[in-house]
Design a protein around this nucleic acid. Sequence first.
DNA 1: AACTACAGCAACCGCCCACGA
DNA 2: GTCGTGGGCGGTTGCTGTAGT
Length: 336
Amino acid sequence: MGRPPCCEKIEVKKGPWTPEEDIILVSYIQQHGPGNWRSVPTNTGLLRCSKSCRLRWTNYLRPGIRRGNFTPSEEKMIIHLQALLGNRWAAIASYLPQRTDNDIKNFWNTHLKKKLVTTKLQNGFINEDKTNMATEISSCNNNNNRCNHNKRITNKGQWEKKLQTDINMAKQALFQALSLDQPSSSIPLDPDDSPKSNHHSATDTYASNTENISKLLQNWTSSTSSRPNTSSLSINRSSSTGEEGVFDHHSLFSSNSESGSVDEKLNLMPETSMLQGESKTSIDMEATADNQGSLSLIEKWLFDDQGLVQCGDNQEGIIDVSLEGEKNDNNSPDLF
DNA sequence: AACTACAGCAACCGCCCACGA
DNA sequence: GTCGTGGGCGGTTGCTGTAGT
């Protein structure tokens, strides 16, 4: 028996989300919490598939999400983690605070994969481990052959065992990645951290300018008693039509935004704390709770963990994905 | 300046799995 | 065991902006 579609295919709007839709969705989730997505379109009047609502929330509207401008540190971590975990983007995302699996996947497909392929062609791999890794990466990158890592493990015991192994390996990889990023082991979240400059700003259009929504959420959660009526909102927007996406949330919410981060505020509220916990690991939750020290918390978790793999004691399992060039910093062709 | 090709990204699709009722 | 629902994932599409001619 086939599974029914998540929603009726008729009269379902597709394409980019508009600010109005985002506000409606955020408003609803703020009131009812995430979950029961099937009822969201019905209750909100959104002409969207329930799955689309869920994806929109988890990938773009959820508090604590950072988009675009991957830092070199994040880039390295993704490479390490992808090599270790395969294309398990959700698992990788759990180690990258504020990043979503979809965002990481897109970044991998559009940037890192090309770099790795280029490097593979240019430099080759020196030792057997690297050769094996190259084969694995290649197989992972093959559109027609899903990565072995990703093959379904039907046996739960096997899966848990593998997961534990993956976690340990990821810890090693993360430690290595962090240690290579000295002097500071924390991923700088400052925009000045020389992020990869996109050829065009990821925040130029509304669709990617979801920090607006985060701010919106901030204001929303700080003034739930005076929540505006979404049906009467006056919004200047352009969506993806090419006009500058001006989402005038200031006109909607007058509360200031100077008293702490979104997540700091959200953490003060049981409701939003619950929201943050949705579909994310406790690590991520801790990390997103403090933008300034996000990775420091992860590091703490990693390095305080009793199961921490001692650095340098067992590095055979660590796969070095051509990071030798890091010494030459970002633009070094040896990096990839 | 106009046109074309390409790159990047948001979003969707379809499939599978886990979990709870 | 069946069914409904949410979640994860790879693959893909279509739009938009940019670079090149």
